[in-house]
Design a protein around this nucleic acid. Structure first.
Length: 592
RNA sequence: GCACCGGUAGCUCAGCUGGAUAGAGUACCUGACUACGAAUCAGGGGGUCGGGGGUUCGAAUCCUCCCCGGUGCGCCA
């Protein structure tokens, strides 16, 4: 069944076509002036413009009158009004709202429709081996997860890949630093090639300590840096002891990362990393050479990807450094080769910091030049950084990076404090209270991030994040929890949902909000913009809150059929709210 | 130097395929808990949309120049 807007749009578009105007001019949309009417059609002005260009005189109000004449009596329209220079304000018929509400109530997905099926890989997360997760990892995780769920909800096959950073100089740093600390470990004996212990010699905490230690020393000590480079090269060349260590590093890191991402409700289907695709590199490079698209330049192997007549400078893709080492471009290209072979996706989305835009431009061009993918099959969805009040990437008061687990703990504590302050849940079991605080904190965190437009930087303000009133995650949870509470009460009272009959303005308003769900999903998908879905869910929660205030559902004096109708409406609102929250990545508790 | 992103209410942000009185949240002021949960609802004040010029019946939105902030630009990832 089509939405209210689709029905109205079809009617106005047809009316324009009948008068000989392009159908597209008759587009109806949600009104900018909801105080006048919920929908508007602005085509009359544009139509007058078309006539004028053809040399005819035209009065937009007159055109609007002709359109209105065609629309009079349409069953979905209650009221048409021409305003200003030729705006047509449209109020839908209450009967149409009632019919639409019934259809939404009967639909498990509350009006959401599927997209043509595609196989899509989303590359997000971006965590590195041996480095603890910090606030910089939040956006990729949260946005990527939301897009994954958004696409899946609309019938797409989506594979989420964390694409671990587990290759390169950082591994050399770790190996050499560990060697300095525990030289007796068997991994460092060059003569030994097998029979290493199964248990890791280091924990995640060790790794988090070793890497910065080595990195700092190497910055001022060229000899120390050289040792790391040599170790990296030996690792990549296949030295067994180092490979075994790498395996431990990766396993320990993944354990910690699963915990960290798990706390955010973020799950990946693939935990592949750069190391996993390294074996593909030699053949890939031979293939690219054979295609004749590589060249040697200053000892390095490159692919030129600049295009003619373009303003910006696009430097070449670096396949091999002059030292022979594999680089960032190389592993990303090998990953594309791997994905083609293993998954053969229709589309690959990279949810990675906007600062990497040029990198992906280069990689994509090389992949197209190699004939592996079409340009439209790869898209970099950049996002802005989370800044402090000074406009620079957020730092703690001490000047360090804020660990993700500390941020989450901060949110949880704020939520707990709010619970205590409101005296809510004093009688709940301790376990439930902790669970509620967790859910409220995560909801606040994720919604605060996702409601910002993806591409822009935003300011991380701890006070704003831990606010639980207004346009926040907890507001959405509160709306859902209140509905759940009513549904429980209705069960106790023996009231059940029945036929929906729309009357009250707040009911009409709620149906119109529900009607916008599929539109919001499609707009959010089209632009890969989670904030558009956040807006919808917030508006839905607002419409419900108003309905809740204006339209008593279970109160004694509400007539039985009205109770049944409003209860059905509330159930439908809850179902859509939960779909929306689920896509955003938020869980609502049963009470809070 | 070149390129990309941004500058909208005190604050944090939407709106940018041109449309009416530029919206939301917050903060501030007012009202609503003897009806389903007040983390709520209703109402109010608050804006030279960074600046100039241009296109248009109409510009926050398109074009152009300038100012301010952020970011990126061959052998780190």
């Amino acid at each position: 069944m089509s939405t209210i807007l689709e029905t109205l749009n079809a009617a106005t578009s047809a009316a324009f076509a009948e008068l000989g105007f392009p159908e597209a001019l008759g587009a109806t949309r949600e009104s900018d002036r909801p105080d006048l009417a919920p929908f508007q059609c602005n085509g009359a002005m544009a139509a007058a413009g078309v006539l004028k260009k053809q040399g005819h005189k035209a009065n937009p109000r007159e055109i609007a009158q002709n359109i209105v004449a065609k629309l009079e009596g349409h069953p979905a329209i209650a009221e048409l009004e021409i305003a200003g220079p030729g705006f047509i304000n449209i109020r839908p018929a209450v009967a149409a709202l009632t019919a639409r509400a019934a259809a939404l109530a009967a639909d498990d997905k509350t009006g959401a429709t599927d997209l043509p099926p595609q196989k899509i890989v989303i590359d997000y997360g971006g965590a590195n081996v041996a480095k603890p997760m910090h606030v910089g990892h939040l956006r990729s995780a949260v946005i990527g997860e939301c897009l994954k769920r958004l696409l899946r909800f609309q019938g797409q096959t989506v594979i989420g890949d964390v694409h671990l950073g587990d290759w390169g100089l950082q591994m050399g740093h770790l190996i050499t630093e560990l060697q300095d600390e525990q030289p007796e470990l068997p991994y460092f004996k060059a003569s030994k090639t097998s029979g290493y212990p199964d248990v890791s010699p280091v924990t995640m905490d060790d790794l988090a300590r070793l890497y910065p230690a080595a990195s700092n020393k190497a910055k001022s000590d060229e000899a120390r840096m050289e040792r790391s480079r040599v170790a990296t090269a030996e690792l990549q060349a296949g030295r067994e002891g180092y490979r075994a260590l790498l395996g431990h590093f990766i396993d320990e890191s993944i354990k910690a990362l699963k915990k960290g991402y798990g706390a955010l409700g973020v799950e990946f289907d693939l935990w592949k990393g750069e190391a996993a695709v390294d074996p593909l590199i030699p053949d890939m490079i031979e293939g690219l050479k054979a295609q004749g698209i590589t060249e040697e330049d200053g000892g390095a192997l490159i692919i030129r990807v600049e295009e003619e007549n373009e303003k910006k400078d696009v430097p070449p893709v670096m396949l091999l450094a002059s030292s022979g080492a594999v680089l960032y471009h190389t592993t990303d290209l090998a990953t594309l080769v791997d994905r083609k072979a293993e998954i053969d996706p229709d589309l690959i989305l990279y949810v990675v910091d906007q600062r990497q835009a040029l990198h992906f431009e280069q990689v994509f061009r090389a992949a197209v030049k190699a004939g592996w993918y079409k340009p439209e099959q790869m898209e970099h969805l950049g996002f802005g950084t989370m800044n402090g009040k000074d406009g620079k990437p957020f730092k703690t008061r001490e000047g360090g990076v804020l660990r993700l687990e500390d941020l989450i703990a901060m949110m949880r504590e704020a939520a707990q404090a709010r619970l205590d302050e409101a005296g809510i849940g004093a009688d709940f079991p301790e376990e439930e209270r902790a669970d509620i605080a967790d859910k409220v904190g995560i909801a606040a965190l994720k919604f605060a991030d996702l409601q910002n437009q993806r591409t822009t930087n935003y300011i991380f303000d701890p006070e704003r994040f831990t606010a639980f009133e207004g346009k926040t995650g907890p507001y959405l949870l509160y709306a859902a929890v209140r509905i759940k509470s009513i549904l429980r009460k209705a069960t106790d009272m023996g009231v059940s949902a029945g036929e929906i009959v729309i009357e009250d303005p707040a009911e009409q308003n709620l149906v119109l909000a529900l009607d916008g769900f599929d539109r919001a999903l499609k707009a959010a998908t089209d632009k890969y913009a989670p904030h558009l879905l956040c807006d919808h869910v917030f508006r839905l929660a607002q419409a419900f809150s108003r309905f809740y205030t204006d339209c008593p559902i279970l109160a004694g004096k509400t007539p039985e059929p009205v109770k049944a109708s409003r209860l059905a409406l509330a159930q439908t609102a809850l179902r859509q709210l939960e779909h929306g929250l689920n896509i955003i990545g938020i869980d609502a508790p049963n009470r809070m």
